[in-house]
C-alpha cells in the first residue's frame, strides 16, 4: 500500500462551546475529519448541527462567547508532516492572522451583508493583498482586477470602484470569491455560498468554484445542507449531527451505501422528480434537531432514529469505527457489522 501524503487539514476531536447566560451550548462536540490536498470535502447536516461553527473554528473566528475548548486542528500547508495546531493559537494573535486570508480563506453565505456596504469591492479585495504581500499600489490594483476577471466579473476595471449595492447577488458572490482567492489560499472554506442565490446563479457559482479549484490546485471545505450540491461537487462527504461527525467517506459510497441511519434519512429526504405523481410523499426525518441546551444522552441521534435500541443507544455514546479506507461511521450498528 502506497503511503498517502498527510492531509492538508486534519481536525481531531474538535470541541467548540458557547458559554451563554442560560447554559453551555456544545456547538461542536468532538468532530473529527480531514481534508486531503486538492480535494473538495462537503460538510452536510441540518441547520444547527454545527457545520458553520466547525468552519469558523478552523479559522478561529467563532463569535463570542464561542470558544474552541478542545481537540486539535492540524494544518499542514506543505505536506512536511510537521503541522501547526490552529486550535492552540491565540485567536487574536499574529500567527493565526497570517494564515487567515492567505493560506486559508473563507466565503460566506450572504454576500450582501458579508461585504461592507460603504467600501468599494476593489478596496475590500485589495486589503487582503496588502495584508499578505508587499506589492505596491499599482501591483495590488492589477492583482485585484486580475482576480475579478478570473471569477467572471464583467468589466473588472470599472467594477473595482463599485459598491455592493450596485451589484447583483451573483456578482456580489463573485466578488466575495475573488476576495477569498486573491492570495491563492491552499484551503477555501465555503460556508453555504450558494444558499442565498437563485437557482440559475447557484449553478453558475458552483461551476465557477469547481473550475477555480482545478485551476488553483486548492482544497475546498464546502459547507452545505443541500445533498444535490454535494452530489455535484464533493470528492468526500462529512455528515454532521448535533456537533458530532456521524459518517465520513467518498461521495459515491455515501450516496450508494450510507451506513449511518442519519445519512440514510438525509438521502431519503431528497425530493425526486415525479415523486408526487407516483403517489409517494416526500420522506422527512421525524422530529427536529434537539434543543442545544438539552442534548440527549448516548447517541445524539437516538430520539429520531428508526433503528435505535433502547438500553444501548440512549445510554452509550457510540464509538467511531473505520469501516473502510477513509470511511468512518459513528454508530453501534456499523460497529457490530465490523466485529462480526
Amino acid at each position: 500500500m502506497v503511503e498517502s501524503p498527510p492531509p492538508l487539514l486534519d481536525v481531531r476531536d474538535l470541541r467548540t462551546h458557547f458559554a451563554t447566560d442560560t447554559g453551555m451550548v456544545t456547538a461542536v462536540d468532538g468532530a473529527s475529519f480531514s481534508v486531503p490536498r486538492g480535494k473538495t470535502v462537503c460538510v452536510v447536516g441540518e441547520s444547527g448541527c454545527g457545520k458553520s461553527v466547525t468552519g469558523r473554528s478552523i479559522l478561529r473566528i467563532v463569535d463570542a462567547p464561542g470558544r474552541v475548548v478542545g481537540g486539535s486542528i492540524l494544518w499542514d500547508r506543505d505536506g512536511t508532516g510537521d503541522p501547526v495546531d490552529l486550535a492552540t493559537l491565540d485567536p487574536g494573535g499574529p500567527d493565526i492572522r497570517k494564515i487567515r486570508g492567505d493560506e486559508i480563506a473563507m466565503v460566506f453565505q450572504e454576500p450582501m451583508t458579508s461585504l461592507s456596504p460603504v467600501h468599494t469591492i476593489g478596496s475590500q479585495i485589495a486589503e487582503s493583498v496588502r495584508l499578505h504581500t508587499d506589492l505596491d499600489d499599482d501591483a495590488v490594483r492589477g492583482r485585484v482586477i486580475e482576480v475579478l476577471g478570473q471569477v467572471g466579473m464583467p468589466r473588472p476595471e470599472s467594477r473595482y470602484d463599485a459598491y455592493t449595492f450596485q451589484l447583483s447577488g451573483g456578482m456580489r458572490q463573485r466578488a466575495m470569491i475573488a476576495m477569498a482567492l486573491v492570495c491563492h489560499p491552499r484551503l477555501l472554506i465555503a460556508d453555504e455560498p450558494t444558499t442565498a442565490l437563485d437557482v440559475t446563479t447557484q449553478a453558475q457559482i458552483l461551476r465557477l468554484m469547481v473550475q477555480l479549484q482545478a485551476e488553483m490546485d486548492m482544497s475546498v471545505l464546502f459547507i452545505t445542507h443541500d445533498m444535490g450540491v454535494v452530489a455535484q461537487i464533493a470528492d468526500e462527504v462529512v455528515v454532521m449531527y448535533l456537533g458530532t461527525v456521524v459518517e465520513t467517506g467518498p461521495t459515491e459510497q455515501i450516496f450508494t451505501d450510507p451506513r449511518h441511519p442519519y445519512t440514510r434519512a438525509l438521502l431519503q429526504a431528497i425530493p425526486r422528480f415525479g415523486q408526487r405523481r407516483a403517489g409517494r410523499a416526500l420522506s422527512i426525518i421525524p422530529g427536529s434537531v434537539p434543543d442545544p441546551y438539552r442534548r440527549p444522552g448516548g447517541c445524539p441521534f437516538h430520539p429520531r432514529c428508526a433503528q435505535a435500541r433502547p438500553g444501548t443507544c440512549d445510554v452509550v455514546e457510540p464509538a467511531t469505527v473505520t469501516v473502510a479506507e477513509r470511511r468512518d461511521v459513528r454508530c453501534v450498528l456499523a460497529a457490530e457489522e465490523v466485529h462480526s
Binding site: 469558523r56 479559522l59 463569535d63 497570517k98 486570508g101 473563507m106 460566506f108 458579508s114 486589503e127 487582503s128
Partner: peptide, 22 residues
Amino acid sequence: NRPYVVTARAKGLPERRLLIKY
C-alpha cells in the same frame, strides 16, 4: 457582530484596524 466584520477578520485584519475601518 455583523457578517462583514467576520469577513474582515477572516482576511487576517488586526482587530484594532478592523474596528476603526469597518
